[in-house]
Amino acid sequence: MRTFSTPGDVYNAVPPRVVFGAGTSERIAEEVDRLGARRALVVSTPGRSGMAERIVAQLGDRCIGLLPEAVSQVPIELARRGQARAKEMGADCLVSVGGGASIGLGKAIALELAVPVIAVPTTYSGSEMTGFCGITIDGVKRMHKSLRMLASTVVYDPALSASLPLDVSAASAMNALAHCVDVVYVPTASPVIVQAAVEGARVIMDALPRVARKPDDLEARGDLLYGGYLAGAALTGGFALQHGVAHVLGGTYGVPHGLSHALVLPHVAAYNARFAPEALGRIAEAMGVAEVGGAIFDVMKTAGLPTRLADVGFSESAIGEAARITVETDDGSNPGPVTEEAVRGILDAAFHGRRPG
């Protein structure tokens, strides 16, 4: 007989309002009004400041300013500066515009100030759907969880991702795919979340090659963004070894966030297939492939992504230390044993770019 339970609180919780479609970013002022806010602070990276400034102009006197300082991996020092700045300015709402760096900084500010967040993602990683945020403290990325960080509204406009370079798009899509793969076997995921993961994997594997062939195809971009939305919903179920390794690569060794996920995903999927064959079999069936790890590796090549950690500045001599940190920060949710030997094997395969299977 079927039995299950979910942990409640931040796990499996998704934002109460999602607005999806081309042109929706032109109506952010309506979403600020909907929340009853009057002093919105817009958050972005320096690279997305032009887009953020257009939203500032759209908000008019509803906006108190722009904080274009977000960087990847959310350093704790930046989080504290952002919290202090928002408090000094009297922000009663945050509008986070951009990829995971902007979304993450908005979350880190909300964690302290408990103000509502409107997330406007321009990439596919799905962080906007969760109450999780990785904050880097003393060189180690540590996961924080709180309903305070869960967005009140998410606005998905495919047009905002249309100009995203192909390599960045592909890495972000692989990050989203990692959420789908890594959640199907964790004990904290609900059956609904697993369904989102399976469908998200199917959509991403279909849309990414289309975007790679024609990066300005707005319909393909919209499908990939929809896959990112599903992957973000899936991420609320929790995560396991794949995210643990990727967070170490990004937070401690500076591997770009999307690539840190992409480069280890095929190898973690292959490792866990031995311990969770039924769960990963559902992903394989949805993708229309025989084996998940090898299929993901092939799609990475099709999209023009690097397939070796050696190609992104990671040193082979760091494998042992990275494995140790991964094991030390593991939370026990992975189906296969998380040992230094196992993680070293995964990192060694990723470093040399060996195709799983």
Rank of each mutant, 00 (worst) to 15 (best):
G47L: 04
A101R: 10
V184K: 13
A119V: 01
Y185A: 12
D331G: 11
D61I: 13
V299A: 00
Y124C: 04
A197Q: 01
Y253I: 04
A342C: 12
V248Q: 00
A170C: 07
I103Y: 02
M300R: 03
L241C: 13
A110Y: 02
Y185S: 13
S72H: 06
A171Y: 08
L78I: 07
L249S: 04
E278L: 13
A176E: 11
A171N: 09
A234M: 08
P158T: 03
Y229P: 03
T136F: 01
G320R: 15
A110P: 13
M205S: 11
L218C: 07
M174A: 07
G238W: 01
A40W: 11
Y226P: 00
I118H: 06
E199F: 10
E31N: 08
V19L: 13
G90H: 08
A269N: 14
L230Y: 03
A323L: 15
D311Y: 07
V18L: 12
V155R: 04
Q195P: 00
A201N: 07
V338I: 14
R213K: 11
V32C: 01
V10G: 02
G200H: 10
T136Y: 01
S163W: 00
L166M: 09
E69R: 09
A91S: 09
G126N: 03
A310W: 11
V168C: 06
L208Y: 00
R148F: 02
Y11Q: 09
H257P: 09
